[in-house]
Lab assay of single mutants.
Amino acid sequence: DEFHFHWNGRDIRVRGDSEELRRLIEAIKRGELSEEEIERAIEILER
């Protein structure tokens, strides 16, 4: 699976399928994380 979302003017695409990944992306979409937490998560996910 590939998750695709927009954040902070960026087009983010992440491959993978796990419950943890889904929860993280939902939290990002709901605005539950700080900008710094989101940046760090995206860096890890894009590897």
Rank of each mutant, 00 (worst) to 15 (best):
D1I: 10
E2C: 08
F3I: 06
F3E: 03
F3S: 02
F5C: 02
F5A: 00
H6P: 01
W7N: 00
W7F: 05
W7R: 01
N8D: 02
N8S: 01
N8L: 04
N8T: 00
N8Y: 02
N8F: 03
N8K: 15
G9T: 01
R10P: 00
D11W: 15
I12K: 00
I12R: 01
I12W: 15
I12Y: 15
R13E: 10
V14S: 02
V14W: 14
V14R: 00
V14T: 03
R15T: 12
R15L: 10
R15M: 11
R15S: 12
R15E: 10
R15Q: 11
G16C: 03
G16N: 05
D17V: 06
D17I: 06
D17K: 06
S18W: 07
S18C: 04
S18H: 07
S18A: 07
S18P: 07
E19S: 12
E19H: 12
E19T: 13
E20V: 15
E20F: 15
L21Q: 10
L21P: 02
L21K: 15
L21G: 07
R22F: 14
R22N: 06
R22W: 15
R22C: 03
R22M: 12
R23C: 06
R23E: 06
L24R: 01
L24H: 02
L24A: 03
I25W: 15
I25S: 04
I25L: 13
I25G: 03
E26K: 13
E26A: 14
E26T: 14
A27Q: 14
A27L: 13
A27D: 08
A27G: 08
I28S: 02
I28L: 09
K29R: 12
K29Y: 15
K29W: 14
K29I: 08
K29D: 06
R30S: 15
R30Y: 10
R30E: 08
R30I: 07
R30H: 10
G31K: 08
G31S: 04
G31N: 12
G31Y: 10
E32S: 13
E32Y: 12
E32N: 09
E32A: 12
E32P: 02
E32C: 06
L33H: 04
L33A: 03
S34N: 11
S34P: 06
S34W: 03
S34Y: 04
S34G: 07
E35W: 06
E35Y: 13
E35K: 11
E35H: 15
E36C: 05
E37I: 04
E37P: 01
E37W: 05
E37L: 06
E37A: 12
I38W: 04
E39H: 08
E39T: 11
E39A: 07
E39F: 11
E39W: 13
R40A: 10
R40G: 07
R40K: 13
R40Q: 12
R40Y: 12
A41N: 05
A41M: 09
I42D: 00
I42E: 01
I42F: 04
E43Y: 08
E43A: 13
E43F: 06
E43P: 05
I44C: 06
I44A: 10
I44G: 06
I44P: 02
I44F: 14
L45N: 02
L45C: 01
E46M: 14
E46Q: 09
E46T: 13
R47K: 11
R47L: 12
R47E: 12
